[in-house]
Amino acid sequence: MADQTTTAAVPPRAASDEPGLAKGRFSLLVWMSERGVFLFTALLVVVAVVFVNGFASLANITDVFYRAAPIGIVAVGMTFVVISANYLDLSVVAQVATASVILVGVSNTAGFPAAIGLALVVALLYGVVNGLAVGVFKANAVIVTLSTTFIGLGILRWLSGGSIFFGPEDGPIRAFGQAKLGPIPLSALVLLVITAVLWFVLTRTNFGFLIRSFGSNKAATRLAGVNTALVVVGAFVITSLAAMLAGFVLAAFSNTAVSTMSDGYDFSALAAIIIGGTSVFGGKGSVLRTLLGVIFVSVLTNILVLLGIGFGLQQVAIGALIVLAVSVDALARRVGKK
């Protein structure tokens, strides 16, 4: 069975206790980490509708959907990496940009199927490289994906020359980007479909069960005879495929693609995942919560923009929210253990 070296390679994680044991004044903390996002999202939307001038217009809501769709697709995909207790995938920035540049740039010269095929190959490459480094070599996911971000963006900017690619005015990309169902753009429906599929994978399939099991207790999962390397590779591949689709949606939105268009996606996606209540300690969370987190972050960003608050303060606000949400989760977890 598992020999000594394998056991030594992964330090045993403390089993996560059910936070339901907490009592008294700490139960508020636990409640906030468990259910808080529902209340806060509802509150935020109500406040926005009542107090923020220009929020409750059809054009603005459509705009919120347009901006939320690509970030949301990245976030629901990356939820798999976070639940498997691998912190996050920073390289989604490079992946989204690469997919959109390939979709627009390559389809201009080599046709649509070639572009999608190439984007798929690149996405799988990202997922497998990240997954192998983290799953087989047991390297730290933050450092691995930091390095693949720089490698990927470097290659993309080198090959594309940093130029902007424009899709044809009457092409299928533009048609997709402009398509709407009432006030809801097609890209938001894509987000919903992907969320539904990933929800099914995470909660109803064997693979999803292994992801959650690996996230809550790596050692126990391995000792149960699971090929844990394959689980990690799977989590990263799902993230990469989602990032590729997000790149397509993002390119279709503006019918252009450039290597800098996805700056900050790692940050927004992580914010959505964590605010939604998926735990960075792994094992706990769901894609539906992430969807709620996406709504929260998108509405908040939209309010800040409508109020004329600059980019810097938006970053500070959302960064502080990430730290706050993780703190609440960490404290609730500690209370639950006592």
Partner: peptide
């Protein structure tokens, strides 16, 4: 004191401080 993993805590700080640099 809060018990957050330093990877995540300092990542949040990375984003928040970048915003702060823009604000200042």
């Amino acid at each position: 004191y809060v018990g957050i993993n330093s990877f995540i805590a300092t990542l949040g700080m990375l984003f928040a401080l970048r915003g702060l640099a823009f604000v200042i």
